[in-house]
């Protein structure tokens, strides 16, 4: 087996995650799909790291994880705040950005 298959898997997971972001309305599930996309990217980084024989890819994946963790913290806080004021976790309910 060629490690390139990991990349194919990564692309597949990324696309599934993206479709999930577009389809789901529950903000938490949308967030999970974003996490899925990030993880897919990480997989690609790690695989590239192996393909190229250096650790830079892993470093990037590491930073992605850190940033993702920070993002999750803030994102979930936002969801909680929105839920408190609107009593709904649906992204469609927060649709004030229009005339």
């Amino acid at each position: 087996m060629n490690p390139v298959n990991y990349l194919y898997l990564s692309a597949l997971l990324f696309s599934i995650g993206a479709a999930g972001v577009l389809i789901r309305r529950n903000a938490i599930v949308v967030f999970m799909c974003v996490e899925l996309m990030l993880n897919a990217c990480n997989l690609a980084f790690v695989t590239f790291s192996r393909l190229h024989g250096n650790l830079d890819g892993q470093i990037i994946a590491f930073f992605t994880m850190v940033v993702a963790a920070a993002e999750v913290v803030v994102g979930l806080a936002i969801i909680v705040t929105i839920f408190r004021s609107r009593h709904s976790a649906s992204v469609d309910d927060a649709s004030l950005m229009k005339l």
Partner: peptide, 14 residues
């Protein structure tokens, strides 16, 4: 086009 739905915007971005 500007319907206010974030998902709609996300589709156009994607």
């Amino acid at each position: 086009v500007q319907n206010g739905y974030a998902r709609s915007y996300a589709v156009s971005m994607f």
